[in-house]
Design a binder for these strands. Structure first.
Length: 632
DNA sequence: TTAGGGTTAG
């Protein structure tokens, strides 16, 4: 038995109650909790002093609940717990549930579970608090365990519990269990509220089943701001990010006002689409409705403007932000990186250090990427060493990928290969892709073959890898190997996935695929393309048919290249905008080197600036040159 | 007495 010194503990706000507990409270509570059902032990350990006479107040659950709500530490909670036991109040389900909830809030799940396990009576609140408690601390297995126990007990979960377990499925992208829970709901005809519906939509979306998410969303009786935000965010992550912006307009049309979280999500969607006009409209909405530029919204806007092509607007927002964290600084450094402004990225990094913010692993990815996009080789090597030497940040495969890209673009392929070979962590497709890209620039077929074969091993179902390797063989005149690649694709039933290009014209986004005839101005576009091609031929442009992988003759290959999506988009841009206006390609899916050559030459013969964004790397084609000094 | 959506890279 513990020897305990007695002292008076006053519960804040209820000092008259004068809860008196032993001094070594933690030890006492540890003893009490497992034994709380053996109440006979307790009176010997605890002396209870009442400053007021014994009255019904002491049996009033509100007093214990207030005491719990005022508890600031686990020790205090255990003290109140002890009192609850002593007073025989644990039979009161409201008090017991509140105790459970407060333990869960303090992440004291073992205390909570000990209490839960001994409860003779439980209700829906008891179960939801336990499931929620485990889910919130990321102990999903225990959360599911409690949920299973609930189902086995013959009870049905309430909406609170359902929200928690569905959230657990979302967090670990467990589509199977998510569907099972959805089935339970349907089977029992449970009436779902907005919390559960939004959780289901979110779960399906995070598990990449966007069609089901949308169906659920459309079938909701009433959609609140959270449901809208979840759906808008789901599209932002999908291939159809533009639908986020369509939904945002629809939401406002239905009279639902955006809050800050919804705006952060829409800003993120604008960044994904690269839609500058939409970005400006969302910015106007934020200003008009006087939303403060906090660290999260501000950072999202910096990223949005950078990805929509305006590094100046990004910097303006960044400078206006009162509070900046490591994410904000990294976003600004990355922004300079996308635009090939390496020295500004480095300068921003120095400012970040001066302001007392420590870099994280992502800061270094942004920094190394900026060096690689600006040809700052020595600086990149210096930062790569610095991250471990100065900040104890171990480089991961992403940092190595930046370095391989950096060295490879500079033609230092041997060093790039050494870096790949020295890697002890798992090599991913990004790393091999960077090496392969460098080999393509510098025409190193042997090394390209090595990288491409590694890629084929990692992703045998990705047709892009076969095409990459085939292009390299074609460039080297190894036609048998080209044919072998084509046969392999055919055997594995892989088809080339068409490329897509998005262009912003007159405040709208227009989308093109290769050979597209769906645009309302298709006829004019093809006439424009034909005229451009003739002018380019006269200027010496020869289509690089290595970018076509088909068993057809050269003439047919030229035909296939002719209507690639980026070319259709540029032809449309020329057609639909006045002279002197920049043409903005907001996004490119599956980049074709020949298209970039085309863009460069079109900028020369039309005296237009053509801005092309692919994979967040911006190319500014002006007067027949690319600002980032790239190799097209 | 129990519940939700948001920022940097890849």
């Amino acid at each position: 038995m513990l020897r305990l010194r007695k002292q008076t503990f006053l519960v804040p706000g209820h000092d008259k109650l004068g809860l008196c507990l032993a001094n070594t409270v933690a030890a006492l509570a540890d003893t009490i909790i497992p034994l709380y059902h053996q109440e006979s032990i307790l009176p010997h350990n605890i002396q209870i002093q009442e400053q007021q006479s014994q009255s019904s107040r002491c049996l009033d659950p509100k007093l214990y609940i207030s005491a719990l709500l005022s508890s600031r530490s686990l020790i205090q909670i255990r003290q109140v717990h002890a009192q609850v036991v002593v007073r025989g109040m644990l039979q009161n389900l409201v008090v017991a549930n509140k105790l459970l909830y407060i333990y869960a809030q303090h992440k004291a799940l073992s205390d909570a579970y000990a209490l839960f396990d001994g409860m003779k009576e439980r209700n829906a609140v008891t179960w939801s608090v336990m499931v929620g408690g485990f889910v919130k601390v990321g102990d999903y297995a225990s959360g599911f365990g409690i949920f299973r126990e609930l189902i086995r007990s013959g009870m049905l979960p309430d909406n609170y519990t359902l929200s928690f377990v569905i959230r657990a499925c979302r967090d670990i992208t467990d589509l199977l269990n998510g569907k099972l829970i959805h089935c339970i709901v349907l089977k029992h005809g449970l009436q779902l509220d907005n919390f559960v519906c939004a959780a289901l939509v979110d779960m399906y979306a995070k598990c990449k089943v966007i069609v089901d998410a949308r169906q659920l969303f459309d079938n909701m009786n009433s959609r609140d701001i959270v449901s809208w935000t979840v759906m808008i965010g789901a599209y932002a992550e999908s291939r159809n990010a533009y639908e986020s912006l369509v939904l945002f307009d629809r939401m406002r049309g239905e009279g639902v006002d955006a809050d800050k979280i919804a705006l952060v999500t829409v800003v993120y969607a604008c960044a994904k689409v690269g839609a500058m006009h939409k970005a400006r409209l969302v910015h106007d909405y934020i200003s008009t409705n006087k939303f403060s530029l906090d660290v999260i919204l501000g950072t999202a806007m910096v990223d949005m403007y950078a990805k929509c092509g305006s590094i100046d607007s990004a910097r303006e927002i960044f400078d206006r932000m009162q509070e900046k964290n490591v994410i904000s600084w990294s976003a600004m450094i990355a922004a300079y990186g996308y635009h090939g402004h390496g020295s500004e990225a480095l300068e921003t990094f120095s400012m970040m250090l001066s302001s007392g913010i420590l870099p994280n692993s992502i800061t270094f990815i942004s920094l190394l990427y900026a060096c690689s996009h600006s040809g700052l080789i020595e600086e990149g090597l210096r930062f790569f060493s610095l991250m471990w030497d100065e900040y104890s940040l171990r480089p991961d495969v992403k940092h190595y990928t930046c370095m391989v890209d950096l060295l490879g673009r500079a033609g230092r392929l041997d060093e790039a290969l050494k870096m790949v070979e020295s890697l002890t962590v798992e090599k991913d497709e990004g790393l091999w892709g960077a090496l392969l890209g460098a080999c393509r620039i510098h025409g190193n077929v042997d090394l390209a073959e090595l990288a491409a074969n590694a890629l084929l091993d990692l992703q045998p179902q990705n047709p892009g890898n076969y095409i990459l390797l085939s292009n390299i063989y074609a460039k080297a005149g190894r036609w048998k190997d080209v044919a072998r690649m084509r046969d392999l694709m055919s055997q594995r039933r892989l088809k080339k996935v068409p490329g897509w290009t998005w262009i912003e014209v007159d405040y709208n986004i227009h989308q093109f695929s290769a050979g597209d005839m769906t645009h309302p101005r298709s006829k004019e576009i093809y006439v424009m393309l034909k005229s451009l091609s003739k002018k380019l031929e006269l200027a010496g442009y020869v289509p690089d048919t290595n970018f076509v992988l088909h068993d057809v003759d050269e003439e047919a290959k030229v035909g296939m290249l002719y209507a690639h999506s980026e070319k259709l988009a540029i032809a449309f841009g020329l057609l639909a905008t006045s002279s002197g206006t920049s043409i903005r390609i907001t996004k490119n899916l599956r980049v074709c080197g020949d298209c970039h050559t085309f863009s460069k030459l079109v900028s020369a013969i039309t005296e237009r600036v053509i801005v092309v964004r692919d994979a967040n790397r911006f190319h500014h084609f002006k007067e027949g040159a690319c600002s980032c000094g790239d190799y097209w």
